[in-house]
Amino acid sequence: MDTGVTSRIGSKFRELGEQKAKGLIIYVTAGDPALEATGELLEAIERGGADIIELGVPFSDPLADGPIIQRASERALQGGTTLRKVMQALPGWRKRVSVPLVLFSYYNPILQYGLENFARDASEAGADGVLAVDLTPEESESYVQTLRKWNLDTIFLASPTSTDERLERVASVSTGFLYLISRTGVTGERKEIAANTRPLIQRTRKFTRLPLAVGFGLSTPQQIHAVEELADAAVVGSAVVRAIEERFSAEGAAAIEKYIRWLKQGTGSSPA
C-alpha cells in the first residue's frame, strides 16, 4: 500500500532505481557485543556501502534465528540491551548515519512497550521502518495503523511456503519494501541459493510494486548478485553478525567496513 508519504526507505529505493543499482541491506544486532559499540558499527556498515540497516532488538526466545544470531542476542541481553535501551540510543545513532534504519524485533517487546509509545518513540528517534518477525498480517491491524500514523514503514516477511493468497495479504499490509525469505528455515548462512527463490520473487511481483528484498542464507557477493538478477535488494544478516563476533574485538570496526565493502561487490556498484 502506498501512503503517498515519501519515507527515507522509499527515497532510497527511488535513488537506487534512478542509478539502475541494486540495494544492500545489512542486519546487525543492537548491543552486540555492547551497546556502546553499535554506533561505531553502524558507521562502518554505512561506509562499507549498506543502503539500509536492519537493527535487531535482542529477544530472550529468538525462535526464527539460527545459532549465530542467537549468540548475538545472548551477548546483547547479557550486556543489558533491551528495546528501551535501543530507543534511548537511537537518536545518537541516527545522527551518525544517514541510511534508513529498520527496527527488527520479535513482537512481545513491542507489545509490552506499548504500540503507541513504541511508534512515537521510534519515529521521533529517527527509525524509518519496523519488522516484527513473528507478527502475522492477520494479527497486525492495530500495529499497522499505529505505525503508519507515525510514518513508519511496516515491513513484513514473505516465504516460499506463502500461497498466492498469503502473498497478497502480506503485500497489502507492507510499505517500504517486502522481505522475501529465500528458503524455509531459520536465519543463517547457506552455501547455495534455494531453487524456489526465483519463483517466489516472480509470484510476489504479481501483487505489489514495492521493492523486493531477498534474505536468509546470503553470505557472498556471488549470492547477492544472483538474487539481484530479479530482486531489488539483498539482505545479509548472520554472515555480518559472525564477522562481528570473530573480528570486531581484535580488528575493530574497520574490519567490518571492509567486509561490507566486499559484499557490496555483489550489487555491481561500489560504495560512494
Binding site: 525462535l63 526464527a64 513482537y107 518477525v133 513473528d134 507478527l135 502475522t136 492477520e138 494479527e139 513484513f156 516477511l157 514473505a158 516465504s159 516460499p160 511456503t161 506463502s162 500461497t163 498469503r166 502480506v170 525469505i181 524455509t184 528455515g185
Partner: peptide, 20 residues
C-alpha cells in the same frame, strides 16, 4: 475464527509456518 478465546489466543508465528 481467528483462534481467539475472548482476547487470548491468535497466531503469532513467522510467515514460513503460516501455510502449514
Amino acid at each position: 475464527a481467528r483462534g481467539r478465546f475472548g482476547e487470548f489466543g491468535g497466531r503469532y508465528v513467522p510467515e514460513t509456518l503460516m501455510h502449514a
